[in-house]
Amino acid sequence: MKSAMIIKLDEGQRRKERPSTTSQMTLLDIVANGTAIRLFKETIVSIDIGVKKRYVMSVRRQSGRGWIAKQVIWPEGELELALLEVNKVAQQEIQRVTVLATA
């Protein structure tokens, strides 16, 4: 009964297309105390939105429970904000490890 109702509701739904990445250009790549911080410009293409360019910051750090990842996305005209955020994250990471080393 429940699966039939779900299938019936699903039939009328329009599928949302997932955009595909056509190009990526790395602007900044920092490794600070085992944390990888990467800023890149990405061009995505979709039938729904067309061609869109954006800046993406990706941060990966290993912790006791495995990898922690964070991703922040800015529109094309926001390069200065993206660079400021990358700088802030790198400083926080260096400060975090320095505090742990002195404690």
Score class of each variant (00 low, 15 high):
Glu42Arg: 13
Thr43Pro: 00
Val59Glu: 00
Arg14Asp: 15
Leu27Ala: 07
Met5Thr: 12
Val89Ser: 03
Pro19Gly: 08
Arg18Asp: 07
Thr21Gln: 04
Pro75Cys: 00
Ala82Met: 15
Gly64Leu: 13
Glu11Arg: 15
Gln62Ala: 12
Asn33Ile: 01
Val56Ile: 12
Ile94Met: 08
Gly77Val: 00
Ile47His: 09
Arg14Ser: 10
Lys70Ile: 07
Val99Thr: 09
Thr98Leu: 13
Asp29Lys: 09
Ile7Pro: 00
Val56Tyr: 06
Thr102Ile: 14
Gly77Lys: 01
Gly64Asp: 09
Ile37Trp: 02
Ile68Thr: 01
Lys52Gln: 10
Ser46Ala: 08
Glu78Tyr: 10
Ile73Trp: 04
Tyr55Ile: 00
Leu9Ser: 11
Ala36Leu: 11
Gly64Ile: 12
Gln91Val: 10
Gln62Gly: 14
Glu78Trp: 09
Gln71Tyr: 04
Asp10Gly: 05
Leu39Glu: 05
Val89Lys: 09
Lys88Ile: 05
Ile47Val: 14
Lys88Cys: 07
Ser58Tyr: 07
Gln71Pro: 00
Lys8Pro: 06
Gly77Tyr: 02
Trp74Thr: 00
Arg61Glu: 04
Arg18Thr: 11
Met5Cys: 05
Ser23Gln: 04
Val72Gly: 00
Ile73Glu: 11
Val56Asn: 06
Leu84Arg: 12
Ser63Phe: 08
Ile37Ser: 01
Phe40Cys: 03
Ile44Pro: 08
Arg96Thr: 10
Phe40Glu: 08
Gln92Ile: 10
Val51Thr: 12
Arg15Glu: 15
Ile47Asp: 10
Glu11Lys: 15
Ser46Arg: 04
Ile94Tyr: 00
Thr22Val: 14
Lys53Tyr: 04
Arg14Ile: 13
Leu84His: 13
Ala69Phe: 04
Ala90His: 05
Met25Ala: 10
Arg18Ile: 13
Glu17Tyr: 02
Val59Trp: 09
Leu9Lys: 11
Ser23Met: 03
Ser23Pro: 08
Gly77Asp: 12
Arg61Asn: 03
Arg18Cys: 06
Arg61Ser: 13
Ile73Val: 14
Val56Ser: 05
Ser46Pro: 01
Arg61Cys: 01
Pro19Tyr: 02
Ala69Pro: 01
Gly77Leu: 01
Met1Ala: 14
Ala32Asn: 13
Pro75Tyr: 01
Ile30Ala: 06
Ala101Cys: 05
Gly77Pro: 02
Leu27Pro: 01
Arg60Leu: 05
Arg38Leu: 14
Ile49Gly: 10
Leu28Asp: 12
Leu28Val: 14
Val51Glu: 08
Leu27Lys: 02
Met57Leu: 12
Ser46Cys: 12
Gly50Tyr: 03
Ala101Gln: 11
Thr26Leu: 12
Glu76Tyr: 15
Gln92Ser: 13
Ser58Cys: 04
Ala90Phe: 12
Ala69His: 06
Ile44Glu: 07
Arg15Leu: 15
Val72Tyr: 08
Lys41Tyr: 12
Lys16Glu: 09
Gly64Thr: 07
Glu85Leu: 11
